[in-house]
């Protein structure tokens, strides 16, 4: 079943066509890889699917609903979470708080919740709310074996943990679909190995994963399906085996053989 798809998605910046007429599909419950050389338009495609950027042309459908141009916070609330290529943690907040922010919209459903005048009577309710946020946040920190680090400031974490924390924060929003933009970038081989296992575990929880990655070993090992972009265009789509032997992909990565 298709969980998310784009139809003819195009994004131009002035004269630069970053993404050109791309039909991208994500199947529910699987891990989809999005690969391509630097500047191929992978991050731009992510941004256009998560509401951080607005397509010039084309549409994005999630669960059959048109979500094109919806604000990012709405898209997140619908069940799409993401991480960023250049880590975007709340640096001066603690590890726990970072993940609690992911739980933010899950609490405070009553119309006056968390508002200013309500500050008076919410004395007791706030503690209850915090407890809820805390236990779900901790659940995801423990998932990444980071429970002990919860009072640490995010900026003080080692790099690998920062990447994992970003994933934990995204998972805290209870997504159906998780976008990971180069999660293994800057990780050493052991960390990458561990990340690979983690992504598998996330899929086993029933969460659909889309990942951009340059580490081919990782991509080929864990992806069920791969889409390849080059110069903004989709040049191939298929299983890892198919992609590995696709002439257009080989050409994009290795360059055309000169006769």
């Amino acid at each position: 079943m298709i969980l998310l798809e784009t139809k003819g998605l195009t994004r131009e910046y002035g004269g630069v066509v970053a993404v050109s007429n791309v039909d991208f599909q994500v199947n529910q419950g699987l891990i989809t890889g999005l690969i391509g050389p630097n500047g191929a338009g992978k991050t731009t495609l992510f941004n256009n699917m998560t509401g951080l950027d607005m397509p010039t042309k084309g549409k994005v459908f999630f669960n059959g609903h048109d979500i094109t141009g919806k604000p990012a916070h709405r898209i997140c609330r619908m069940g799409i979470a993401r991480t960023f290529q250049n880590i975007r943690l709340f640096k001066e907040l603690t590890v726990l708080e970072n993940v609690m922010i992911g739980r933010h919209f899950k609490t405070g459903k009553s119309p006056f919740h968390g508002r200013f005048l309500n500050a008076l009577d919410s004395y007791f309710r706030m503690s209850r709310e915090d407890e809820q946020m805390y236990s779900s946040a901790l659940k995801w920190l423990d998932f990444f074996e980071m429970g002990e680090l919860c009072d640490e400031l995010a900026k003080n974490l080692p790099y690998g943990h920062q990447r994992e924390l970003e994933i934990a924060r995204a998972l805290a929003t209870d997504p159906q679909l998780l976008f990971l933009d180069e999660p293994a970038a800057g990780m050493n081989p052991q960390e990458t190995e561990h990340l690979m296992e983690t992504i598998g575990k996330i899929r086993d929880l029933g969460i659909t994963v889309v990942l951009i990655e340059h580490d081919m070993k990782l991509v080929m090992n864990i992806c069920d399906s791969i889409t390849v972009l080059n110069y903004g265009q989709k040049i191939a789509q298929g299983t890892p085996r198919e992609i590995k032997h696709d002439p257009a992909v080989i050409e994009a990565y290795l360059g055309k053989e000169e006769e």
Binding site: G51, A72, C76, F84, L89, K91, H104, Y123
Partner: peptide, 28 residues
């Protein structure tokens, strides 16, 4: 009280990284 509530935390998230806050479902 306000600062210690979820609203205070949300405001701090916006200060730290508005794009990330928006992507975490906060109506910035």
């Amino acid at each position: 009280r306000l600062a210690r509530s979820r609203m205070g935390r949300a405001l701090e998230a916006i200060r730290e990284d508005e794009i990330a806050a928006e992507s975490m479902g906060i109506n910035t």
